[in-house]
């Protein structure tokens, strides 16, 4: 170790706010797009379903890296408008993970028993109230575990903002690297990985608290408190 230690850590910490902004911004956009596109996938209108399907498959099918490069390097050339790196990053993170989130929303809404829909029909609730008051409150609870995994994927994807020089943690580390001896590299990567690990644990802790609150609201047994790591759902991302 060396006297560079303080400088390394403080430089890396400078990147933390950007990483957090990208993560929170990306999560917010993901949630909005996931709900819009996910409900659109269930629409009665074929046109609406097709448009949403094109968005979902388009963003799931092309690589997130390509999307980032396209938005950051191609779009400015097309429309003559250079996007701020952080903003471009949030846009790509949200658009990409929103497409995955749409399938989560669709699946969760479909998982609510049909009897709940019928109960709401029998009480003369209209389509909007059926969805907002009866189906969605139950579906949201089902969405929480898969969204936990998705948000951690999104957090990990913020490292890609290195490629567009957004001054987040990864880029801060790579700026330092060339000038430092081997021993200090250990510090860089250890600190970086620990920061991401901590952020991932924070996401999981928050999501698990929401899961417990959701289970209580539905009168179910709450999931255990102990686990700090998100449980990987085998289905994949």
């Amino acid at each position: 170790m060396s006297d560079n230690l303080g400088r390394i850590i403080s430089t890396l910490l400078e990147g933390v706010p950007v990483t957090i902004q990208a993560t929170l911004g990306g999560i917010a956009l993901t949630i909005v797009l996931a709900f819009i596109a996910g409900l659109a996938l269930l629409s009665k209108s074929r046109t609406v379903r097709v448009i949403s399907r094109i968005y979902v498959e388009g963003f799931r099918g092309t690589s997130e890296m390509v999307q980032l490069f396209w938005l950051y390097f191609v779009l400015p050339a097309l429309v003559g408008l250079q996007i701020v790196p952080l903003f471009a990053g949030i846009l790509v993170l949200g658009l990409n993970h929103g497409a995955y989130g749409a399938e989560i929303v669709r699946g969760a809404v479909q998982s609510v028993p049909k009897a709940q829909y019928e109960g709401a029909v029998a009480l003369s609730l209209g389509p909007f109230d059926r969805m907002r008051r009866v189906i969605l409150p139950q579906a949201v609870v089902e969405m929480l575990p898969p969204f936990n995994n998705l948000f951690i994927q999104l957090l990990k994807s913020t490292a890609l903002l290195y490629f567009i020089s957004a001054h987040e943690i990864t880029q801060k580390g790579e700026e330092l690297r060339p000038a430092l001896p081997m021993g200090d590299l250990t510090v860089i990567y250890a600190v970086e990985l620990i920061i991401y690990l901590l952020l991932a644990i924070i996401i999981t802790v928050v999501m698990r608290a929401l899961e417990r609150a959701g289970a209580r609201r539905l009168g179910r047994k709450p999931p255990p408190r102990s686990k700090v790591f998100s449980s990987a759902t085998a289905g994949g991302v």
């Binding site: 009897a115 029998a122 003369s124 539905l218 009168g219």
Partner: peptide, 19 residues
């Protein structure tokens, strides 16, 4: 919806809203 207002139904599986 207007017709349904005059008609109520009790289901085999209750169908209460758990939320």
């Amino acid at each position: 919806r207007n017709q349904r207002k005059r008609i109520g139904m009790v289901f085999q599986q209750f169908n209460l809203f758990p939320n």
